[in-house]
Design a protein around this nucleic acid. Structure first.
Lengths: 159, 159
DNA sequence: CTACACCCTGTAGTTAGCTACAGCTCAAGC
DNA sequence: GCTTGAGCTGTAGCTAACTACAGGGTGTAG
C-alpha cells in the first residue's frame, strides 16, 4: 500500500509541514503510523480522514474540539451518538455565525450606500443632523424606502 | 450636553472597561475628549460612532483597519472615496467568508446525516469500503439522491 | 563515503484581541 | 479630612494557531 511523507501530504493538502506536525501534537492525527526511522507515514486512508478534519477546521471548529472528535473515532461505533451530538452542536454555532455575518453584511451595504451618496453630493452633511456627527433618521428612512421599492441592498451600494 | 464615563459606556455597550481603553490605545476612539482630571468623557455623538465601529468589528474588520477608517473620518469629506472603497473591499471579504461557511455547513449536515444513519444501523460500517476507514462512494450517492428528491440538507441530518 | 534533501523533537517567538494587575490621582460623601 | 469608588497609565500575561529555529537523525544518489 502506497504511503506518503509529511512533505508530500503538505503539498497535496496545501498545509505547511509545521502545521501538520502541530496538528499531530495537538492530537488530531493519532492514526498516523511511523516508519523504522520515526518518520510519519500517511496512507490514502489517513489523508481522507485529514480532509474530513480540515473540513471541520474550515467550519471554525477549534482544534481542541476536533481532537475530542478524533479520539471518539478510536472508540469505534460506541461513540456514534457523541459524534452526532458534537456535529449537531456545531451546526448551531455555524448557523448563528452565518446569521450574524449576514446582519453585518447588511449593515456594511447600508454604509456603502451612505458613502456612495455622500460622495456624489460632495459631503457627508447630507446624512447628518445639523452640527453633529450623528446620522439623521431621514437617512435611514430613505434607505428603507429604497429597499421596500425592491432595490437589493447589494445593488444600492454598488458604484 | 450630557456626557458619560467609561464605566457607564461599558455597561451600555456590553464591553469591558479594559476593552474600551484598549480600543482607545489602538486609535479607534481619537474623538473622545477628557475632563480636567484626565478622564474620558463620552458624548451621545461619540457613543453612536462607537456603535458604528463595533458594527465593523462584528463584521470581522481587524482593529488596525478600523483605525484607518476612523482616521479618515478626521479628514472630513476629502476621504469619502477612501471610506467607500474600504467598505467595498470588506464587503467582498464578508461575502466570501459567508460563502465558505455555507459550504462548511453543507458538509457538516452531510456528516450529521452520516452519523444519524450509522447510529440507526448500530455501526459506521454501512458507510465504509470494507476493511478501510474510507467512505464508500455509494454513501455520497445516496445522500445526493435524497437531496435531489427535495429533502433539505438541514432536515436530513436532524433527529 | 560523503553530500544533500528531508525528516525528527523541543523550545521559543508571533499576532490578535483582550484581561489582569500595580501603583497612582481625583472627586464626592460622611 | 479621611475613606471609597472610579478613573488613569504602563506593563505583563493569556489563548489560539501557527511559524521559526536549533540541533540532530536518515536514506539515497553520485
Amino acid at each position: 500500500m502506497a504511503t506518503y511523507s509529511i512533505g508530500e501530504v503538505s503539498k497535496q493538502m496545501g498545509l505547511s509541514v509545521e502545521a501538520i506536525r502541530y496538528y499531530d501534537r495537538e492530537g488530531l492525527l493519532p492514526f498516523v503510523k511511523r516508519d523504522s526511522g520515526g518518520r510519519r507515514q500517511f496512507t490514502e486512508d489517513n489523508i481522507q480522514l485529514m480532509q474530513m478534519i480540515m473540513g471541520l477546521k474550515r467550519a471554525g471548529v477549534p482544534i481542541k474540539d476536533i481532537a475530542y472528535f478524533v479520539s471518539w473515532r478510536l472508540d469505534g461505533d460506541d461513540s456514534l451518538g457523541e459524534r452526532y451530538d458534537f456535529l449537531n452542536a456545531h451546526e448551531k454555532v455555524l448557523e448563528d455565525e452565518i446569521a450574524s455575518l449576514e446582519k453585518s453584511l447588511a449593515y456594511l451595504r447600508f454604509k456603502k450606500w451612505y458613502y456612495k451618496t455622500a460622495k456624489a453630493a460632495g459631503t457627508e452633511k447630507i446624512h447628518l443632523k445639523a452640527g453633529t456627527t450623528q446620522v439623521d433618521p431621514s437617512t435611514y428612512a430613505e434607505y428603507d424606502q429604497l429597499l421596500k421599492e425592491g432595490h437589493s441592498a447589494k445593488s444600492l451600494g454598488d458604484d
